[in-house]
Simulated scan of single mutants.
Amino acid sequence: MSGVTIHQVAEAAGVSASTVSNVLNGRTDRMQPATLARVEEAIEKLSYRPNRAARMLRTGRIRVIGLIVPSVANPFWGALARELEAIALAEGYHVLLCNSERDPARELKYGEELLADGVSGVVLCSSLPSIDHMTPLLKRGLKMVAFDRTAQAGDPPSLASISVDNAMGAELATRHLLELGHRRLAFVSGSVNSVNRRERLRGFRAALEEAGLGPDAGLVWPGADATEFGDKESAELGRSAARELLARPDAPTGFVAVNDMCAIGVCRGARDAGLAAGRDVSVVGFDDILLADLFEPPLTTVRQPLPEMAGETFQQLRASIEQGRVAGRSLLIRPRLVVRESTAPAPLG
Rank of each mutant, 00 (worst) to 15 (best):
L108H: 12
P129G: 06
M1P: 00
T19F: 15
A235W: 00
K139H: 12
L89V: 08
S130T: 14
R61G: 11
D155Y: 13
E228F: 07
A310R: 09
E199N: 09
Y110G: 02
H133A: 11
E41S: 14
R102I: 01
E296H: 12
F147V: 14
A153M: 07
V145G: 06
T300Q: 02
D287Q: 06
L246C: 10
P345N: 06
L172K: 03
H182E: 05
A167P: 00
G311A: 15
L290A: 10
I87T: 10
R329G: 04
L201M: 10
S194R: 04
R202G: 02
A34Y: 03
C267R: 03
A34I: 08
V192A: 07
G190V: 10
Y48I: 02
G3W: 01
L246R: 11
S71M: 04
S240R: 15
R325T: 08
C98T: 10
N25E: 05
K143H: 15
G254F: 05
A247L: 07
G311M: 06
P104V: 03
V9R: 03
F229D: 06
V122R: 01
V119Y: 05
E296P: 00
L108W: 11
M144Y: 01
V326S: 03
A37C: 08
A277M: 08
F76Q: 00
C98F: 15
G212F: 12
M31Y: 01
G214P: 06
E209Q: 14
H133Q: 05
G26Q: 08
R271C: 02
H7G: 04
E101G: 05
L57N: 13
